[in-house]
Design a protein around this nucleic acid. Structure first.
Lengths: 190, 190
DNA sequence: ATTTAAAAAACGAATGTGCGTTCGTATGCA
DNA sequence: TGCATACGAACGCACATTCGTTTTTTAAAT
């Protein structure tokens, strides 16, 4: 089953959003990228430019929330849970680079009520991530650092991967993950 | 010595660039922010919108390069040098929030030749930072991780601070720095 | 297979808007 | 008087989007 034109259009838009930023990417450029002469032709496949941004941001938010829900339901140690979350971030960042870039950097151009939706979901994710760190501190597995500082340091430190990673190198992802575990988990361990 | 109107204009522009992004911040909004009715009045104080972006990006690049040059000239251990660099990033991020945000996120809207200037300087900084990590690995002070992975993980992990930090809390910066040292340096130590 | 009707997709012109910037003029301070 | 600053109108441009029309594709009927 090959991709529909609609899928192609959405993917081209995501790529251009990643390369130039949401505002700098014009409908005319997106059209050219999928072989259309006129930007107006795009409107047979999408409702608006923002529709694409909304889809990317909300789909990725769901992905992260589903991921952390799965982690929460295991009976692993806090260390294992943290590793699973880092793995989640690295997986998503390497499997769907363009979407993650847009999700990370362009959400601020969402209009209401989508912006509020997005920020609520992200806050929820952060809170649940922080709870896992706090449980590790409480159990003595982790050092007694400020959980918020640990949370954002870890979350942010993974945000360079989608920028650095080039597709088609599955082995290097394993090496990458091993080193990131060393850097981020060993530092936190007691 | 109070601030000149030009300084006020540049600062207001930087703040708006931080809040909304460079492209979304309009000259008309900047004018309003400094009490001018007309955007055209701004042009008595600046040459163009991009002039402000160029100034912010290049000044900050210089700041980081001067900072790492000072660290290189000491005879400290790699561990001490790494701590000094993290301190440098945290200092700049807390002392000049708006500039660092723009420097981090908006440089891509520079036009040539400024974009090339900027990227060259940044690459130089990264290479020198990486050398320090490599020397720590060679001396056995650091674990034998991939230096590039360590570099970007550390560099990126500090990029949430300007977003989180609110001015007027000098004590918390000390605590912040202590916890960031634990997370990033301890993980790398052998 | 060929024809035919409907649906989907592409076109091209046009609309309205907001943008950065220029210019001539007016104001106010030294 | 002269200089820096502010004003307000105007310019040209690129943008997202709309609309009516034409072309292409699809699927059913002959």
């Amino acid at each position: 089953m090959s991709k529909t034109k609609k899928q192609l259009v959405f993917e081209a838009a995501a790529e251009l959003f990643m390369e130039k930023g949401y505002l700098a990417a014009s409908m005319r450029e997106i059209a050219k990228k999928v072989g259309l002469e006129q930007a107006s032709s795009l409107y047979n496949h999408l409702k608006s430019k923002e529709e694409v941004l909304i889809k990317i941001c909300l789909e990725n938010a769901e992905r992260f929330i589903n991921g952390i829900a799965a982690v929460e339901q295991t009976s692993s140690t806090p260390i294992e849970k943290l590793k699973a979350l880092i793995h989640l971030h690295i997986s998503i960042a390497t499997e769907d680079r363009t979407s993650v870039t847009v999700f990370n950097d362009e959400w601020r151009h969402l209009s209401e009520p989508h912006l509020n939706d997005f920020l609520t979901k992200r806050k929820d994710y952060e809170n649940r991530f922080k709870k896992i760190i706090e449980s590790g501190i409480a159990s003595g597995d982790f050092k007694a650092v400020d959980p918020t500082i640990a949370l954002y340091t870890i979350l942010t430190s993974i945000r360079w991967i989608h920028y650095w990673y080039k597709p088609g190198r599955s082995q290097s992802v394993v090496d990458l993950e091993r080193d990131v575990f060393v850097l981020l988990v060993e530092g936190l361990k007691n």
